[in-house]
Design a protein around this nucleic acid. Structure first.
Lengths: 144, 144
DNA sequence: GTCACTGCAAACCCTTTGCAACTCA
DNA sequence: TGAGTTGCAAAGGGTTTGCAGTGAC
């Protein structure tokens, strides 16, 4: 993605958030990062550019972003929380052998499921969204 | 479900696990329970029948069951782990307003997704299973 | 009798919180 | 200036672990 600092500034202003160096660097790190880092991984990346930052701040800022809807939390079994910038609708591939999580974009499949859930209502439940978690094994490693 | 102690005993033997009162009561509690309890909820339920049991033991036994594949862990964002006896293939409904999780059985939808993933392979990834997490709101409360 | 299992409590680790200092607008 | 943010360190809360004692087989 390589979001420019200007874009990030703009985004923060749209959200009525004060533009602080910490917020900028965290959002930039997350946007530039293809993987799904934990708070601590983000922290380790961020202190390279912004030495004066506390872990607690990383958590706080991430939580703010989650509440504003621009970042989502991903929880996988027995692992710490991971964070992901909200982009187009996508699903996740979970490795059974490791902690890896990869994005899986598939509008067609999402459409099929979405339409199914629209047509076939679930009694007593109003569907607002869904996530397909696919588990399995990465066969090709590389180019991450 | 109301699994009888005999059935549970049999199940444990099949798995080459020693039949201890703690294991029996925990599996029975989980099988008889429609909700998706946390370890602590299970503990609170279990001490009624088996006063001498430690929280750590509950965690250990649940972990054993998860490893043997007869219980699954469910993690929802920012909440503790929840446990569920592995039964037929089913999915979960997550409430956006509370911690509730309900089962959602739908072989038709599962079939559609399963077939789709079989036909449309994901490059670099071998699919072994999937879970559809549907989020929304429970409109009718009651009869749980 | 043996070895796996349990109880207990301490340790662990991720995450949250309280508060004083600071800084963006 | 002053409301909102940050740094820091301590507290919190769920889960794991080590070890001595116990119990299933």
């Amino acid at each position: 993605m390589m979001m420019t600092p200007e874009l990030i500034r703009k985004k923060l202003k749209e959200l009525n958030l004060k533009v602080t160096p910490q917020r900028v660097v965290i959002l930039k790190t997350l946007a530039d990062n293809k993987s799904h880092p934990t708070a601590e991984e983000i922290y380790r990346e961020v202190i390279k550019k912004q030495p004066n930052i506390a872990v607690g701040t990383v958590y706080n800022i991430l939580e703010t972003y989650v509440n504003r809807g621009i970042v989502e939390k991903i929880s996988s079994i027995g692992d710490k929380m991971r964070y992901d910038v909200v982009s187009e609708d996508h699903h996740h591939l979970f490795s059974k052998n490791s902690d890896e999580i990869e994005d899986y974009f598939n509008v067609e499949l999402a459409g099929i499921i979405g339409r199914y859930l629209e047509v076939n209502e679930i009694p007593g439940f109003k569907v607002e969204g869904f996530k397909l978690n696919i588990s399995g094994e990465f066969t090709k490693r590389g180019k991450n």
